[in-house]
């Protein structure tokens, strides 16, 4: 709590700076793509949020495992705090994808494997949070959501492959892997990486804020309980 309190303003500040810098660079200082025109610039929102959407779930999985194995109380709250942020990222990725898809593919929505996977991921986030909110006892809620997160991860992964099997889609192949930079020119690549870092830090900052809020609310509950018992 002390540590996170000291780090939080810095993380938030750096996140804000990198985000502004990355997005500004991306939006105004890069040339238009020769085929896609200026619409390509939405990539600076789309790709980092999509990345964070997946990382958010991964973070929840790790936190859930830590809670189940080590019973570390904060980790359960981290998982709880990460869920809405991750869900928002998924939503932004889906929305920007739709906005980008309209001029590129001529449609707002296509049942492309990646789009579909993200929609399914969104449903998983929804169910996970609904379970948190439905259970009154925080300890029970932490246990049950952790189990759901682990089982859900397995099925989310399965869904990913099932969807690939179901429909080969419109998305371009992995053009952003680290070793094959020739696909995307450095002019686009550098601001994109900055944006990814920015969104990563923003994600971290938001999760930290939410976790601190959760911890404070739990502390408040504990104090109230003690007051009532005394």
């Amino acid at each position: 709590m002390h540590l996170s309190g000291r780090f939080l303003p810095w993380v938030a500040a750096i996140a804000a700076i990198t985000l502004v810098a990355g997005l500004f660079w991306g939006f105004f200082l890069t040339p238009d793509d020769y085929r896609q025109g200026s619409t390509v610039k939405i990539i600076y929102l789309h790709v980092p949020t999509a990345l964070m959407a997946i990382n958010g779930w991964f973070m929840m999985l790790v936190a859930s495992l830590i809670w189940l194995i080590r019973r570390h109380h904060v980790s359960a709250l981290v998982a709880k705090a990460a869920a809405p942020v991750g869900m928002t990222m998924t939503l932004i990725a889906l929305a920007t994808g739709a906005i980008w898809g309209e001029p590129m593919w001529g449609t707002w929505w296509a049942w492309d494997p990646r789009l579909t996977s993200f929609l399914i991921l969104f449903l998983f986030y929804l169910g996970y949070q609904a379970l948190w909110h439905a259970i009154d006892d925080p300890d029970t809620a932490a246990d049950l959501t952790s189990v759901l997160c682990i089982v859900g991860s397995v099925f989310a992964l399965l869904s990913r492959y099932a969807v690939l099997f179901w429909n080969q889609g419109l998305h371009q192949g992995a053009s952003l892997s680290l070793d094959s930079q020739q696909h995307v020119d450095n002019v686009f690549w550098v601001p994109l990486v900055i944006c990814m870092c920015g969104f990563g830090l923003a994600f971290l900052a938001l999760v930290l804020v939410r976790t601190r809020t959760e911890i404070r609310s739990r502390r408040l509950q504990a104090l109230l309980l003690r007051e009532r018992m005394a």
Binding site: G127, A130, L131, A134, V151, G152, A156, S159, A162, F165
Partner: peptide
């Protein structure tokens, strides 16, 4: 997961249906 809840029915569908995706596909 939802056995102890008063109105678990809707929540149950929300939790189970995403898990059904691979089987359905």
């Amino acid at each position: 997961l939802t056995v102890g809840l008063k109105r678990g029915g809707l929540l149950l569908s929300l939790l189970v249906l995403p898990l059904y995706v691979p089987t359905l596909i």
